[in-house]
């Protein structure tokens, strides 16, 4: 087993140098694959979930005001808009991550 350096600041320097070296290394291909898989999972559900929530809220409002499917339709359209907005935001954050990792 290697002997520990007497001076703790020297050890700190060595740890920092090792960390910097590690950070500069490009991401492993498998790590990128996990990120892509995560993005694929995210994109699909980010779009669908606001539509579902919109339909649920619309259904509750229709029951409440004793109307037919008016609120359900309106909220489904709002849900589509929210889904597109979510996709746009998710794509923005992914682009930011991609540019950051380059």
């Amino acid at each position: 087993m290697k002997k520990l350096p007497q001076d703790i600041s020297e050890l700190d320097k060595r740890i920092r140098a090792a960390k910097n070296k590690k950070e500069k290394q490009p991401k492993h291909a498998s790590a990128r694959w996990v990120v892509f898989l995560q993005n694929a999972f995210r994109m699909s559900i980010e779009f669908v979930s606001p539509i579902f929530i919109g339909i649920c809220v619309g259904y509750i409002l229709d029951k409440w005001f004793d109307t037919r499917v008016i609120f359900m339709l309106i909220m489904a359209i709002f849900g589509c808009a929210a889904g597109v907005l979510n996709l746009y935001r998710a794509a923005q954050s992914m682009e930011k991550d991609l540019n950051g990792s380059k």
């Binding site: 980010e46 669908v48 606001p50 929530i53 809220v57 909220m75 709002f78 808009a81 929210a82 907005l85």
Partner: peptide, 21 residues
């Protein structure tokens, strides 16, 4: 009237998407 419902649905969808996934 357009933006507030869209943003509210977008917020409410967050826990739903986390849960379903």
């Amino acid at each position: 009237p357009l933006i507030i419902p869209v943003e509210t649905l977008s917020l409410l969808a967050k826990p739903f998407s986390l849960t379903i996934r």
